[in-house]
Design a protein around this nucleic acid. Structure first.
Lengths: 177, 177
DNA sequence: ACCTGAACACCGTTCAAGT
DNA sequence: ACCTGAACACCGTTCAAGT
C-alpha cells in the first residue's frame, strides 16, 4: 500500500476519528487499517498522546488562517473546530493540558483579547469555558448514541448557551452602561 | 472479610481514588482489593459508569450541607470538592454529562444564582467553567507527575485565576458602575 | 532506517455454573 | 440471592530480530 509515514498515519487517524470518535484512535485499530503491526507506529510516534496531539493540531489548523478582533468570535471559532469531530473537546483539552499541541486555540484568544482591550487573563478562562461546554455536549451526544436516557435539560441550543456565557464573561451584559 | 455490598465497594473505590486517581478505579483492581472476582462487582453495579457515579455523589456530598447566597462562593465550593481527589473534575464532568449523578453541583449553583438575582442560565456556564479549569490543572498535575516538562504557563495560582474568571462572568468587573 | 513477531501487563463485560 | 471460573474481545507498549 502507501508508505507508512507520519502523514499517512495522521490521515487514517483523522478518518477514524470522524467515524468512531476517540475510541477509533486505538493504536491497534489504526495499525490494522494501515495493514501494519501495532509496534510499527511507535517508530513514527513515541506514544499515543503524541499521535493524538498531531490530530489536534490538524483539527485546530483553521484558526491559523483567521484574524479575530473579538474574543467571543475567537471562542466561537474554536468551538467550530472542536465540534467538527466527536470527542474533539476532550482530545484538545488533554493535549493542551499536557502541553503537547493545539496552542493555536489559546494564542488566537490571547490576541483577540488584546485587540479588544480585554484583560489577557480572560483568554484562558474563555478557553476552559469553551472546552468545558463543548465537552459536556459531546459527552451527552455520546450518551444518547449509546441509548442512555438523559433527564433534565434538553440537548439543543448549546451554541447559544455558550455565546451567552462568553458575552457575560466579557462584560456584554453591561456594555451599554 | 467484610461482606461485599454497594457500600464496601464504594469505600474501597474511594480509597483507591485518593491513592491512584481514576486509573485506580478499575473493576479488576477494586475486585482484587476486596478479595473477590471481577464479575462479582456486576451484581452490585450494572457497569463501571454507575460505580463511578456513586463515587461522584460521595465526592459532592459536602455541598448538600451548605447554603450559598453567592454563585462565586458556590462555584468555589464545588472546586473544593473536585480538587479533594485526583481526576475529580474529569469524573464529575462525565457523570453529569451522562446524567448519572453529581447533580448537587448544578443545583447549588442554580440556587445561588436565584439568591443573588443572577440569570439562571449562568449556572451551567459557571459549572462548565469550574469543571474545565479544574480538569485542566488536574491533568497538568498528572503530566508533571509523569515527568512531562510543561512549557508556557506556571502551574500555580489556579484558584485565583478561577475566582477572577467567575467574578468577570457574574459582572464583578462592572459592579461599581 | 524501518518494520515484524511476539510477548507483557493490563482493561470492561458476560454468563453458565455453583452455593 | 450472591459469587466463582473462565472466557471474550479488547487495550498501550516494548524489543529482539529481521530486511
Amino acid at each position: 500500500m502507501t508508505k507508512l509515514t507520519r502523514e499517512s498515519i495522521l490521515q487514517v487517524a483523522m478518518r477514524r476519528l470522524h467515524e468512531y470518535g476517540l475510541s477509533g484512535l486505538s493504536m491497534r485499530g489504526i495499525a490494522t487499517e494501515l495493514g501494519v503491526q501495532p509496534g510499527a507506529l511507535y517508530w513514527h510516534f513515541a506514544n499515543k498522546q503524541l499521535l493524538v496531539a498531531g490530530v489536534c493540531d490538524e483539527l485546530m489548523a483553521p484558526l491559523a488562517d483567521q484574524q479575530f478582533r473579538d474574543p467571543v468570535a475567537a471562542a466561537m471559532a474554536i468551538r467550530e473546530c472542536l465540534v467538527s469531530v466527536p470527542d474533539g473537546a476532550e482530545m484538545v483539552a488533554s493535549t493542551i493540558a499536557f502541553g503537547l499541541g493545539a496552542e493555536a486555540a489559546h494564542s488566537c484568544l490571547v490576541e483577540a483579547c488584546r485587540e479588544a482591550n480585554q484583560p489577557a487573563e480572560l483568554a484562558s478562562t474563555a478557553l476552559h469555558l469553551v472546552l468545558g461546554e463543548v465537552q459536556h455536549e459531546q459527552q451527552r451526544a455520546q450518551a444518547v448514541a449509546l441509548g442512555i436516557e438523559i433527564g433534565s435539560e434538553s440537548v439543543r441550543a448549546s451554541e447559544q448557551t455558550l455565546r451567552t456565557g462568553l458575552q457575560a464573561l466579557f462584560g456584554g451584559r453591561h456594555e451599554h452602561c
